[in-house]
Simulated assay, not measured.
Amino acid sequence: MAERRRVLLLGSTGSIGTQTLDVIARNPERFEVVGLAAGRNRALLDEQAERFGVRAVAQGTTEAEALVRDVEADVVVNGITGAAGLGPTIAALETHAVLALANKESLIIGGPVVKPMMAPGRVVPVDSEHSAIHQCLASGARGEVRRLVVTASGGPFRGRRREELRDVTPEQALAHPTWSMGLMVTTNSATLVNKGLEVIEAHLLFDVPFDAIEVVVHPQSIVHSMVEFVDGATIAQASPPDMRLPISLALDHPHRVADAGLPIDWTTAQSWTFEPLDDDAFPAVALAKAVGAAGGTRPAVFNAANEQAVHAFHARRLAFLDIVPVIEAALATVPEPTGTVDLAAVLEADRLARAAADALIAAS
């Protein structure tokens, strides 16, 4: 019997974290939790530590980075939300562990720093879309890939015209039809900022140019993404929406964990539909593609301004339709640094973008 994989879990009290622990609890012969880190929910963190017999526990980003450096692990799961995950991602890549990456923002904003650190096989995506692409790419050689097709549920406002989004509330934005996620990711799914971020992540993970990455709306969320090859074949990964499947694949890559998720019930009649993205109602994807193509610190500015705008929206200080314009204005306000884009430049761009976004929100 193979030795159990030692798992260090960052963001243990969030949506990804709790589902990761569920996978581990159901497969104790394959996985062992050696460290846990979380943000504000200390009570749940302590409960998790007691349940899994974990002594190495951290609270806050700085402590999480130290935990990654101090605790020997085979897999580091970065389930932290937002830009706060950048430091822990870098710390994980400085170890010998596999990085199971659920914190897309750390790769997106830190691309110039993180990308050179990504040795083959060291980073396994946890996002369902990127896990799907990762699986589909096994069907052919990289030179045979024509394009990636990233699916989107369309969020709670799918089918609405732009003018119909003017008065939507935070409560409506959080009513996602398919997935159960945290406040930031759920809101980003409503604006489709999340899908824009996923396009940038796909580019960085799989080295596919932006003009060969397409977003298609698939409201059933059964087909998690597809890869089209040069001969016309399109390979899709399909399964009921359940994050435990991509989590399990990242935990034990390249092996599969039996019964990690439920399979499709082929005895039940069902229909899968695909629709083009409405760029007028949801301009975030096109903006993200332009930002990703520009590179440098532009993705960091995009992400930071969005985070501030989302918080303002939930504080009812900003309208839903003003979230993307705040991002655009911040991109126009914060200059691109001269010279090499290093970690300090990324962090400074993040700081300036948040300040610019806050000023724009206050003036709106």
Rank of each mutant, 00 (worst) to 15 (best):
P209G: 09
T20P: 00
V227M: 10
D279V: 11
D46R: 11
R244K: 14
N194I: 01
N306I: 12
E29F: 05
G35S: 08
R161M: 13
L321R: 14
G296M: 05
G17M: 02
V230L: 14
R316N: 10
D74H: 09
L321D: 15
E129L: 05
L21F: 00
S364F: 08
L44E: 11
N303V: 09
S248R: 02
D167P: 09
V33M: 06
A269F: 08
E72Y: 04
L205E: 02
L99G: 03
S221H: 04
S153F: 04
P28L: 01
A286P: 00
A58Q: 12
T178H: 11
L67M: 10
L101K: 00
S106W: 02
I264N: 02
S139P: 02
M1H: 15
G292Y: 03
Q270V: 09
T178L: 10
V145T: 11
G121Y: 03
A236D: 11
T340W: 01
R6H: 06
S15C: 06
D259F: 04
D252Y: 05
R351S: 13
Q48S: 01
I235G: 06
E348Y: 00
R256K: 11
A355W: 02
A91K: 10
T81A: 14
V57I: 14
D207W: 00
R166F: 11
V7E: 00
T273M: 04
A300L: 01
T169M: 04
A312S: 07
R244W: 01
L183F: 08
E63H: 14
